[in-house]
Nucleic acid binder design. Structure first.
Length: 573
RNA sequence: UGGCCCUUCGUCCAACGGCAGGACAGCGGACUUUGGAUCCGUUAAUGGUGGUUCGAAUCCACCAGGGCCAACCA
C-alpha cells in the first residue's frame, strides 16, 4: 500500500536566481550571505510518525528540501517521535516512501527518540540551575493553575521545591518509581506570562508505555516544546520552518535553546499552512476518516494524503508545481481546488498517452458496415501539440460502444454529438450519421443506428465537409471489460472545518466522492500495461490503473482528474 | 476581558516610499480529428478613518474583520 508506483522523478529544478523570492527564501538568502550562523544552511522536515503525510506536508517538504538545495545547504528528515502512545513504525515507513516519491532525498535521518538521554541531561541541568522543577499536582490542578488567556496563572505549591528534592524526584521519575501522572517536570518561567506557553510549560511527563523504537527503555517522555527546538539545535539546524500556529511556541523555543547554552541556535520562522477546498488537512481528522471506515484507508484515492494522491494518479511533479504556484506567505490561505487540478492536468497533459474508454456504454451499430469486417486503425498516442510520438492499433468493427451521454434523441441547439440525422466523427475512425435507434419496452434507448461514409477513414472527409463533434468509442467485439472509479471531492462543502456549531465534519462528506462504473469498456491496447499505468481517456479525464486492485483479468482504473468540461458549463445554462 | 499574528482582483502570490503585476478561476474570440490543449483579448483588488510625506498598498495611530494560544498532542 505504501509502495511507490514507480521510481520517483527527483526534483531537479535548477535554482533560479532571477525567480521572485518568497519571504522565507529572502530570509535564508540574507542569513546565508551574512553567515550569521557560522555554518551552512540546514533545514529539517520533522513529521511525527502518527499518521500519513498529506498535501499540506508536501508544501512543507518542498519548502524545507527546496530551500536547502537552493542555498547549497542540507535538509534532515527527523521523526518527531516523542509520544509513545500514538506512533508507529508503519508510519515511519510510509513517510519515508512519500518523501522519496515526492522526489527528495534527505541528508540525515534522525529521530527525536534518539535524543531522550541528551534531553534528560538538559532537564537535570535546568533543575540544577533552578530553571525547572518537579510538579506533583494532578493534571487537572495543573490545568487550572495555568489560568486563562485573560487571567494570570497561580504558582503550583511545588514550585518552590529545593533543587536537591527536584533532582531526586526527577531521577526517580526516570527510574520508573512513579505511576503515570504522578509528577511532571516543568520549566520555571512565569505563571503570569501573557504568553500561555511560558506559564511554566511541561517538559517531561511519565508514560509507562512502550515506544515503537525505544521499547521500554524510557518511562519519561519529552513534550513537543522541550524536544523540538533542542533537537534542531543538536542537529545544527539553522532555519526551523514551521506553520503559523507555532508562533507562540517560538518564545519558549528560544528560551530553551538559550538555557541549554547553544551559541548560535536555530531560528524558527513560521509560514501559513496549506488549506485546500473540499478536504480536510488535519491528521486527527484524516485518522478518523480511516478508523471509522469513511474511506478505504490512508491511501484511499479520495484522501489528500500523499499516498492517496499517488494512488489517485497524481504525479510528484504536479505536486511540486502546485507547491511552487501557491507560494508561501504569513497569511492564512485557502486554495481553490481548481488551482490544484490545473497543476495536475498541466503535468499529465504533457506526459500521458491517450486511449479510448467508455464509462456508460451504449451500442452503436453501423448498419452499412460489413458484418464480419474488422479494420485496424493506427491511432496516435499523443495529440499534435504534445511533443511525443507513438501510436497504437485500434480495432474498428460494425458494432461499437459509445458513451451514453454522447447521444441524445432530442438534443438542445449547442449539442454537437450524436442525434438523429446528425453526423459526427468517430475519433480516428469514420464519419457516421445517425439513422435511428432501438428502444426497449420501457422506452429506454438500447441501441443507436448509424451509417458510415467509407470515404472518411481516419476521420477526414475528402470533400472537405466539417462535423462539429468528435466522439470516442471502442469496438464491441474487442473491448476489454473494466471498472472505472470516478473520484470526486471528498467533501460536499468547501470548508468542512467550518462547522455549524455542534456539527461533525463527517456529516459534510460528499456521498458521491466515489462513483463506480462496473460495466465500462476500454480499448484493447492497454491489456498488457502494468498496474500504475497512466492514461488520458479521451474526452473524459486522466486515469491510472489502480496500483492495488487492478488485475489483467479485472482491470480497474482510477480517475485522477476529469478533463475541463466546457460543455458542462454550456449545459448548465 | 490578555498576548501574538494576519488583511492587495472570486482564490493564491507579487509590488520592500515612486505607473498595483502574475497565476488559477471567470468572460469573449481564434484554432482544433479530445466541447482537451494552445493562442489572443478581457473583467476584477489595496478593509475603514485619520496622520506623516512632494508622493502611501508600503510608515504611524485608531477602528473593523479574521486567525492562533488556556492537551501530561505535535
Amino acid at each position: 500500500m505504501t509502495h511507490a508506483d514507480r521510481p520517483s522523478a527527483p526534483d531537479t529544478t535548477p535554482p533560479d536566481a532571477t525567480a521572485r523570492k518568497d519571504f522565507l527564501r529572502e530570509k535564508v538568502a540574507e542569513d546565508a550571505l551574512s553567515g550569521r550562523f557560522g555554518r551552512p544552511i540546514h533545514t529539517r522536515f520533522p513529521p511525527e510518525p502518527n499518521g500519513f503525510l498529506h498535501i499540506g506536508h508536501a508544501k512543507s517538504i518542498c519548502l524545507n528540501f527546496g530551500i536547502a538545495r537552493e542555498s547549497g545547504g542540507r535538509c534532515n528528515l527527523r521523526f518527531d517521535d516523542t509520544n509513545p502512545t500514538t506512533e508507529d513504525l508503519r508510519y515511519v515507513d510510509a513517510i519515508r516512501d512519500d518523501v522519496r516519491w515526492l522526489g527528495f532525498a534527505w541528508d540525515e535521518e534522525r529521530f527525536a527518540s534518539d535524543y531522550f538521554e541528551r534531553l534528560y541531561q538538559i532537564a537535570e541541568t535546568l533543575v540544577g540551575a533552578g530553571k525547572a522543577y518537579v510538579d506533583s499536582q494532578s493534571e487537572e490542578a495543573i490545568r487550572e493553575g495555568r489560568g486563562t488567556v485573560t487571567v494570570a496563572g497561580m504558582p503550583s505549591r511545588f514550585r518552590g521545591r529545593a533543587v536537591e528534592e527536584n533532582l531526586d524526584l526527577l531521577r526517580r521519575m526516570r527510574a520508573g518509581e512513579f505511576p503515570d501522572g504522578a509528577h511532571v517536570l516543568r520549566a520555571r518561567i512565569d505563571m503570569a506570562h501573557p504568553n500561555m506557553l511560558m506559564r511554566d510549560p511541561l517538559l517531561l511527563r511519565i508514560r509507562h508505555a512502550a515506544h515503537y523504537r525505544r521499547g521500554t527503555a524510557w518511562c519519561v517522555y519529552p513534550l513537543y516544546d522541550f524536544a523540538h527546538g533542542l533537537s534542531d539545535a543538536f542537529e545544527g539546524i539553522t532555519h526551523s520552518l514551521c506553520t503559523l500556529e507555532f508562533k507562540d511556541n517560538r518564545e519558549l523555543y528560544d528560551w530553551l535553546v538559550r538555557e541549554a547554552g547553544f551559541d548560535r541556535p536555530p531560528e524558527q520562522t513560521e509560514f501559513a499552512r496549506l488549506e485546500l477546498d473540499y478536504t480536510v488537512l488535519s491528521k486527527r481528522k484524516l485518522l478518523r476518516l480511516v478508523s471509522e471506515g469513511h474511506v478505504a484507508g490512508w491511501d484511499d484515492p479520495r484522501m489528500p494524503t500523499i499516498a492517496g494522491l499517488r494512488r489517485r494518479g497524481v504525479t510528484p511533479e504536479a505536486i511540486r508545481a502546485f507547491a511552487d504556484r501557491i507560494g508561501v506567505a504569513r497569511s492564512d490561505a485557502r486554495i481553490e481546488l481548481a488551482t490544484f487540478e490545473h497543476a495536475v492536468r498541466d503535468d499529465l497533459n504533457m506526459q500521458v498517452p491517450r486511449v479510448m474508454a467508455v464509462a456508460r456504454p451504449l451500442k452503436l451499430v453501423i448498419t452499412n458496415y460489413p458484418e464480419t469486417q474488422v479494420e485496424t486503425l493506427d491511432a496516435p498516442l499523443y495529440p499534435h501539440d504534445v511533443p511525443k510520438t507513438g501510436s497504437r492499433p485500434v480495432p474498428f468493427s460494425r458494432e461499437l460502444w459509445i458513451e451514453r451521454d454522447d447521444f441524445m434523441e432530442d438534443p438542445p441547439k449547442k449539442f454537437f454529438r450524436l442525434a438523429p440525422g446528425r453526423e459526427v466523427r468517430l475519433r480516428y475512425g469514420y464519419l457516421v450519421t445517425c439513422t435511428g435507434m432501438v428502444k426497449d419496452a420501457a422506452g429506454e434507448i438500447v441501441e443507436v443506428h448509424a451509417a458510415y461514409d467509407p470515404a472518411t477513414r481516419g476521420g477526414d472527409a475528402p470533400d472537405g465537409r466539417r462535423v462539429q463533434g468528435t466522439i470516442h468509442w471502442v469496438s464491441a467485439g474487442h473491448a476489454l471489460d473494466c471498472e472505472l472509479r470516478l473520484y470526486d471531492r471528498l467533501f460536499a462543502v468547501p470548508d468542512p472545518d467550518a462547522l455549524p456549531e455542534g456539527g461533525d465534519f463527517v456529516a459534510a462528506l460528499n456521498p458521491d466522492s466515489l462513483v463506480t462504473m462496473r460495466a465500462a469498456k476500454v480499448e484493447p491496447s492497454v491489456a498488457e500495461d502494468p498496474p500504475g499505468s497512466r492514461y488520458q481517456f479521451e474526452r473524459a479525464g486522466y486515469f491510472i490503473s489502480d496500483p492495488v486492485d487492478s488485475r489483467k483479468s479485472a482491470l480497474v482504473f482510477n480517475r485522477t482528474v476529469a478533463l475541463r468540461d466546457s460543455w458542462a458549463k454550456v449545459k448548465a445554462r
